[in-house]
């Protein structure tokens, strides 16, 4: 189902306490650092001035940071809010936060944690930050399914009002995490949106 009607216009990989954009290492931290400490340091490095970040769960922080790096220096004003969509996936859904929320239920259930007990909330946080109102979908699968991701994104760009789409893999469970996020559109680049090209970027780390 892959075609060359869609193209990869940018990518960000965050794993093993390293941040890579378009294949180049932008920044790295001590790999022994706790995940939350790493996410906070990455926030300070790449963003800041967004207090809502601190209230997010780890999954939303990770996806939000990847989008922050991916969209830096890109002029969003060239697109209507409905023309940017999101298509993300992971293995553990929101289980990392579900477990933490369950711990609070034993005494006082935390409203702030409860709102993150769905994996698609990360797409909401990204949409709020960047003003996106396009279609969004979140898949849960055992591993990164590049075939599905490339085919689905190509289909979205061909049959809906979307002109670009953030897609990829955002996984967090305990201290284990990884994200590979791609910006894809119909604008021709040297990298057609194919499963092979997505996997090649995903496997950089």
């Amino acid at each position: 189902m892959n075609s060359e009607l869609a193209y990869i216009t940018g990518s960000v990989v965050i794993a093993e306490h390293q941040v890579l954009k378009n294949g180049e290492l932008l920044w790295e931290q001590d790999r022994n650092a706790d995940l939350n400490a790493f996410l906070r340091a990455a926030y300070d490095q790449f963003s800041g001035h967004y207090p809502k970040f601190h209230k997010m769960d780890a999954l939303s922080k990770l996806g939000w940071l990847a989008a922050e790096v991916l969209l830096k220096d890109i002029d969003n004003s060239a697109f209507q809010p409905e023309e940017t969509g999101l298509l993300l996936s992971n293995r553990s859904s929101s289980l990392d936060t579900d477990v933490k929320y369950f711990e609070t239920v034993k005494e006082f259930a935390s409203p702030a944690l409860f709102v993150y007990t769905l994996p698609n909330i990360v797409m909401g946080e990204i949409s709020i930050r960047h003003g996106f109102k396009g279609e969004n979908t979140f898949f849960v699968s055992e591993r990164f399914d590049a075939e599905l991701m490339s085919a689905y994104a190509t289909q979205l760009l061909a049959t809906t009002p979307l002109k670009r789409c953030l897609c990829g893999w955002v996984e967090v469970m305990d201290q284990q995490y990884e994200t590979a996020m791609f910006l894809v559109s119909n604008e021709p680049t040297a990298q057609p949106l194919t499963a092979g090209n997505l996997n090649a970027i995903y496997q950089i780390k």
């Binding site: 209230k55 006082f108 935390s110 409203p111 702030a112 709102v115």
Partner: peptide
């Protein structure tokens, strides 16, 4: 609104 709920939890806790 979520902060409001957390403030209610604070008063109870």
């Amino acid at each position: 609104s979520i902060d409001a709920l957390e403030l209610i939890v604070l008063l109870k806790q």
